[in-house]
Design a protein around this nucleic acid. Structure first.
Lengths: 165, 165
DNA sequence: TATTTTAGTTAGTTTTATCTAACTTGTCAA
DNA sequence: TTGACAAGTTAGATAAAACTAACTAAAATA
């Protein structure tokens, strides 16, 4: 029970997240599913599950299904939340393409400090709660990112009538 | 000469970057310097250098100094550029504290797609070339990040006279 | 110059995360 | 009900990246 409190490795976080996502989709999680989801061989899955079980994050009885423990689910949710937030930032703000954003988010998700993550969340909140659907400045940036120059209405001086934030 | 073209591991990228940074500071790079810079023991440095040498990225003769080859310097510069850009983003935009930003940048730098990086650069450019010293929206965000609410002058409707982008 | 201290190296171990090959269990269909 | 095939497991290999302990070279100094 509630063993090792050490931080999970990137790899184990990936396995945990995979179990969580498959569980959401399929109701039941098998070694094979994790294996194909993460593109690793089945023995790798088995040994990862062993490690996760030792930390009390999953239950996995021989030849049976894989389940997250409450602690495992909590942790997996945390990881996935970082994942989604990062991806959202990459896509919505920077305009990175879906598939690339997915990969980057997947790699980065393991390394952010809590504070950095919190600020990222705030940043997205800030954008979403803007009175405009998409903030003027963000549209300007996307224009700039595509064309390399600022949109004309954004140049020195003049601007349109909606407030900017 | 120009061996292995495979991608470097995170670890080897860190060693390469360390050599680059120490070289900039001290003119001469020793195993000991890398060891203390990266907080690993000296034998770890020696074996990493061996790997980097096999890829033609550093020169290191026994008991001698460590030097980057031209290819090594190119690669190190690339890595460090990503590092600085990420850190700048974290500090200037998200308002993350210096030391935390440094750590996050250091971890993330190894995992970004080129396109994501390019967009990040553009984003910072976009901010820097803003007619205002700090864009209005960014000041608004910092206010929001600190206090959890938007600044009064940023609410629905009214705004001050400088344009927003 | 001889000795001591510091720097660098080698050999060998550990941990993590993968893999392959071979074996076991379980299920489904003839 | 019994095989055949799919799923899961075990054992053992490999590779990367770190470590310690013990040794060697170089440098500093007395």
């Amino acid at each position: 029970m509630n063993a090792r409190r050490d931080k999970l490795s990137q790899s184990l976080e990936d396995y945990l997240e995979a179990v969580y996502l498959i569980e959401k989709e399929k109701r039941v999680v098998r070694v094979k599913d994790i294996s194909s989801f993460l593109k690793v061989k089945k023995p790798s899955v088995v040994s990862a599950l062993k490690a996760l079980e030792a930390r009390g994050l999953v239950n996995h009885e021989k030849y049976g299904y894989v389940e997250l423990t409450p602690a495992g689910k909590r942790e997996a949710r945390r990881i996935y939340r970082v994942h989604r937030t990062l991806k959202e930032f990459l896509v919505k703000v920077l305009g990175v393409e879906e598939a690339v954003a997915e990969e980057d988010a997947c790699a980065i998700e393991h390394y952010l400090h809590q504070d950095t993550f919190d600020r990222l969340v705030k940043f997205l909140e800030f954008i979403e709660t803007c009175p405009e659907d998409v903030p003027f400045w963000l549209r300007s940036f996307h224009y700039y990112a595509e064309r390399g120059i600022r949109p004309p209405e954004c140049g020195r001086g003049k601007r349109n009538s909606v407030q900017e934030d």
